[in-house]
Design a protein around this nucleic acid. Structure first.
Length: 592
RNA sequence: GGCCCCAUAGUUCAAUUGGAUAGAAUAUCAGAUUUCGGCUCUGACGGUUGAAGGUUCGAAUCCUUCUGGGGUCACCA
């Protein structure tokens, strides 16, 4: 039972006693720093039940609590806010409780609960991953970890877009201009090699269009009839007819790409539990369309195309099957969603990490699945995020104006190296260990930079100015962690004793209060699908610790009990930093 | 044009989901520390929360209109 619950029940009792009125709930908030107190009761909502002066009501309730709740040792009322001062013993108890629990804040999944499936990354296999994918991957991974920590089973998944005209484009360009190049022969990462040919296709295509236009053909016409495009379309037909040569080229080049992606994912620190390939799923959903017609959710037009009428919901009509009977994008998505629940029976909801340009698509998709009557359809969430812009504008793969994911990670590691060498705290580290450390810091900076902002907002990323290492940044937090580790290494005495009675320093109280919020912060982050909430909490905790560190002496403290609790607090703060950062996919170093 | 998202110190972000005097970082300036790591800490400066109305005891947050930016409105994915 938390103090909040206790106080809530006593306020209800007190209110009943003083005013003879029952109240359903009490609103709490943490007391603002500028006022005295630890917990605040907001009086205003109570005015609904009893007319009166909020200050007077606050005084009466405060007195009641003072008499009846042992932990409440003082109170004050300001502007309708009842601030309660809680005794130190309570905070000590609170601390000891969380200190005994090495996974404090993390809920283990309940067997009875349904699992969530989190989809992210979902790349095309015709080009390497870029900065936009990086945001997608970091967000998806972090949200998956957060949901897991909040007490739900999670499956991480991606759907690999391995077929379609865009894939054929790079295949064709390789066939025409590749001279049999392979990743081995060029020393290039497979995804890079294939990506180069995707760019090559586009260059050739543009050249042909220009030539046509010169001959007096309209641009629209030229775009449709450029020979290289027609050839790519022919290739797609061959692929769909399972032409042996085409399929084997497709397999070969996709393997190159997968090998390359594997490296990028590993460096990025993300992973998946289940993979789906569009080449396996692109025919799914057609049978569902038939069932949907029977149920009256869909209807057929004269030309044979099938539609869903969403005008009652304020949306448009949406096509779900072409007149020639083939599937469209949304048909696949309907089919794939159902397939996943069939594959993994305990899935009770899904999170789709996809950019906000597809907001409308997912609105429609979720609505259709609901109309089809799937009970899990109410637990679908589009984790929509804003674009990552460069100072030069939008990134375009076809034009090669992208920030490559691999290059970016290398650059960040380089920057970390330069900064860390100035500091020189790494005596005794081997080159290998140093490189590993620079990677941890560089990636920490990048990941934190991206995850600390609300997913919905667009990010401007300037590769020139790079990412900060000071202030509200990953390395700053990592640094604090490393410094705590340094203290712990030096604390060679036995500090395992549990302290139950001690007068706490103001900074100690503050930091215990903040640590105790970790569990609800995780829940809040999970409810909002927002890693930013974890990032900002961690930063607050670190700031509070630095202030504590500045104000009290830890190892130099003469009072043995105080010394013990300060080491314990430091260690627990480090532990929470590590846990919180693990949710963001960021590692913490022992030294830096 | 219809619909959706965004707009907060010079800059990058917060604001306990409707609560107290809108907070941090950064940059600039001034200071602290003989000490557990000088990537630390304490101050100062910086705001008509894009604009105007409305609801409320109380609005950055909710509603309406407008302005600016982005997205989306394919038998593409």
């Amino acid at each position: 039972m938390t103090i909040q619950n206790t106080i809530e029940s006593y306020i209800k009792k007190g209110f009943l006693k003083i005013y003879q009125i029952e109240i359903p709930s009490v609103e709490f908030q943490a007391t603002r720093k500028e006022f005295k107190g630890d917990l605040t009761v907001v009086i205003f909502p109570l005015l609904r039940y009893i007319k009166g002066n909020p200050t007077e009501i606050g005084e009466k309730l405060g007195n009641y609590l003072l008499e009846n709740v042992a932990e409440v040792i003082n109170f004050n009322v300001i502007n309708g806010f009842l601030n309660l001062v809680i005794e130190d013993g309570y905070f000590l108890k609170l601390f000891n409780l969380m200190n005994q629990n090495p996974t404090f804040g993390f809920e283990s999944p309940k067997e009875s609960d349904k699992a969530m499936m989190v989809e992210y990354s979902s790349p095309n296999t015709n080009k390497p991953l870029h900065l936009g994918h990086v945001r997608n991957n970091l967000l998806g991974f972090a949200v998956a970890e957060i949901i897991k920590a909040s007490g739900k089973k999670v499956y991480k998944t991606q759907i690999i877009n391995d077929r379609g005209i865009h894939i054929c484009k790079s295949m064709l360009a390789w066939k025409l201009f590749g001279n049999g190049e392979t990743p081995a022969s060029t020393g290039l990462k497979g995804d890079k090699l294939v990506g180069n040919y995707y760019v090559k296709f586009d260059q050739e295509y543009k050249k042909q269009i220009a030539q046509f236009v010169e001959k007096g053909i309209s641009e629209d016409e030229a775009k449709k009839t450029a020979p290289i495009l027609l050839e790519a379309q022919e290739m797609l037909r061959k692929w769909e007819n399972e032409d042996e040569e085409t399929v084997s080229l497709w397999k070969k080049m996709n393997q190159w790409v997968y090998k390359g992606f594997e490296v990028t994912y590993k460096n990025l620190g993300v992973d998946f539990d289940a993979l789906y390939y569009e080449s396996d799923t692109y025919l799914l959903g057609k049978d569902v369309v038939a069932q949907g017609i029977e149920k009256g959710v869909f209807y057929k037009k004269e030309d044979g195309s099938v539609w869903c009428d969403l005008t009652d919901e304020g949306l448009d009509e949406k096509i779900v099957l072409r007149s020639d009977g083939t599937a469209v994008y949304i048909t696949q998505d309907i089919g794939t969603a159902i397939q996943r629940v069939n594959d993994l029976k305990d899935v009770g909801g899904m999170v789709y990490t996809v950019g906000n340009e597809q907001d409308y698509h997912f609105q429609v998709l979720f609505l259709i699945l609901k109309k089809l009557g799937f009970d899990w359809a109410k637990n679908l969430f589009h984790l929509s995020y804003g674009m990552v812009d460069l100072p030069s504008g939008k990134m375009k793969s076809r034009e090669g104006t992208v920030v490559d994911a691999d290059d970016l990670m290398v650059e960040m590691t380089e920057t970390a190296k330069n900064i860390s060498e100035e500091l020189g705290k790494l005596d005794g580290y081997s080159e290998e260990e140093k490189n590993e450390l620079h990677k941890i810091i560089g990636l920490g900076a990048l990941k934190y930079f991206i995850l600390k902002v609300d997913p919905k907002k667009r990010i401007l990323f300037d590769p020139e100015s790079s990412v900060d290492f000071q202030g509200n940044t990953g390395p700053f937090i990592q640094y604090t962690y490393a410094r705590i580790q340094s203290i712990i290494r030096k604390a060679t005495f036995d500090y395992s004793l549990e302290i139950n009675e001690l007068e706490l320093h103001e900074k100690e109280r503050e930091i215990i209060k903040l640590m105790s919020l970790f569990p609800e912060t995780i829940q809040q982050a999970a409810d909002n699908y927002s890693p930013a909430i974890i990032a900002n909490y961690t930063y607050d905790l670190v700031k509070e610790f630095n202030s504590f560190y500045q104000n009290v002496s830890i190892l130099g403290e003469e009072n043995h009990q105080k010394k013990i609790i300060r080491v314990q607090i430091s260690k627990k703060v480090a532990n929470i930093i590590k846990q919180a950062f693990s949710l963001l996919g960021i590692q913490v170093p022992e030294r830096m």
